[in-house]
Design a protein around this nucleic acid. Structure first.
Lengths: 245, 245
DNA sequence: CCCCGATATTGACCATTGGTCAATATCGGA
DNA sequence: TCCGATATTGACCAATGGTCAATATCGGGG
């Protein structure tokens, strides 16, 4: 290995180190409750060194978020390989989303952070594009199954475009996750198991879209069981009481 | 009027002035892109004076948000007076929500800001409680109609609690609003009219919940027309093409 | 093994800004 | 008009994201 090759590798390793620690900080303490000095200390480098890798604190955090988003897209991709009725397949994506939420607790707070403030504009164009790309990947994987549902005749295609259907599924999922974070909401709505609530709302939306077989006409707990066996054997979370009738 | 009474009134007027300008700043420039010095300049007082009214920048912004939330709750209350089938009545709340969104464009960004960061803990306990109270008011007004729907037999009550149903409605609405803010999402999902999308997703969720009469079995455009006439005659937004069949 | 130019790393320093408080201005009653 | 009380101010402080001249490290050639 040449010297320059080794340097490139070392640089990449250091970036990895920084990203790993930053992720820990972000998840545990949000965006405000730590500073670049502390992060530098945690990875045993000077503050200036961090800025050799990232243009700003926001840029660094966007990089962390993008890596997590890529993991999610990867899970979506695995879920896409599930076979069966199209509604079973979209359910696999919903499962992947919850698998992600469980293995990255509080990650939705990071996602929220990206939406507020002037985050976006303080990050590098390259990183912005990388994030959008992973986001688009997630959207596309859902969209493909929606289109297939329409082709298969499981999902009505006369009232809504496939894009609108996809948007509805994304919206209900994101909304459920976000509202689940709210302690007051959890209390007042009696949410004991956020994940179960998210999946339930996804089911309701699918029913509302008329995506057959409807919840009442199919044993989706069996689908979940097969899903675990075939695609996510290492799923880290316990299936809650199923919403299937 | 006594001297002390006048002073109280003047103080209240100044607080109003500050809140008004802060709201303009918040909506137009987010949280970061202005500072307390600038706000002080805008209202022709010194920075220190702002801190006689608010404990921190976050406290001030929470106050702004709470006033807006109260306006929303007020709209919900008006909507609650609409008569008809329970699903028509919940539709009135959805209408109110969109009415609010239209007359306060970009307010959802402010709402998002509250969810992220360490906002909450930098605000006064009093203001936190005020905000929660208005939030609870919104929730309760929806919840009342949900319970009535169950009592009336329009909405199944064997599978889900009334609280879970309310949560689902809130989640789909918040999720739709938030995702509508995302320019990239709007583009990729082909969202041309965010408000229409929000209402459509609310309709889908209601259908999924089995809230009768279903979208296909009722002329909800007539409901909307009556709603405008009876409750929101001054509605500032144009009804999009209805989603009713 | 040493030397030197190139490269990598550092942390003192800067600018911004949320927040404080001693100094100052204003007020209102005697 | 004067004085004590109250209201207002803006210079100042501390924290922190970001910069860059100074320093340390590296590695190849003699």
């Amino acid at each position: 290995m040449s010297v320059s090759e080794r340097k490139v590798q070392e640089r990449a390793a250091r970036e990895e180190l920084i990203l790993g620690h930053a992720r820990g900080f972000l998840l545990r303490r949000g965006f405000q409750d730590w500073n670049m000095e502390q992060l530098a200390g945690a990875v045993n480098y000077a503050k200036g060194t961090l800025y050799l890798h990232f243009e700003s604190k926001e840029d660094l955090c966007l990089a962390v978020a993008t890596r997590a988003l890529r993991e999610r897209a990867d899970l979506f991709e695995r879920a896409s390989r599930f076979t069966g009725r199209t509604r079973e397949r979209i359910r696999a994506i919903g499962f992947a989303c919850c698998e992600f939420a469980c293995s990255h607790p509080d990650y939705f707070k990071v996602e929220l952070m990206l939406k507020s403030a002037s985050f976006w504009e303080k990050a590098t164009e390259t990183r912005r594009q990388a994030h959008q790309m992973e986001g688009a990947r997630c959207f596309r994987l859902v969209h493909e199954i929606v289109k297939e549902g329409m082709r298969a005749g499981d999902l009505p295609h006369d009232r809504m475009t496939s894009e609108s259907v996809t948007f509805a599924l994304v919206a209900v999922t994101v909304g459920s996750h976000i509202m689940s974070l709210e302690p007051a909401m959890k209390l007042v709505a009696g949410i004991d198991d956020p994940i179960r609530t998210v999946r339930q709302n996804q089911d309701l939306m699918c029913d509302g879209l008329g995506w057959r077989p409807l919840l009442a006409d199919w044993d989706y707990s069996a689908t979940d069981a097969r899903l675990r066996r075939e695609i996510f054997p290492t799923a880290t979370w316990c299936e809650p009481v199923t919403t299937a009738g």
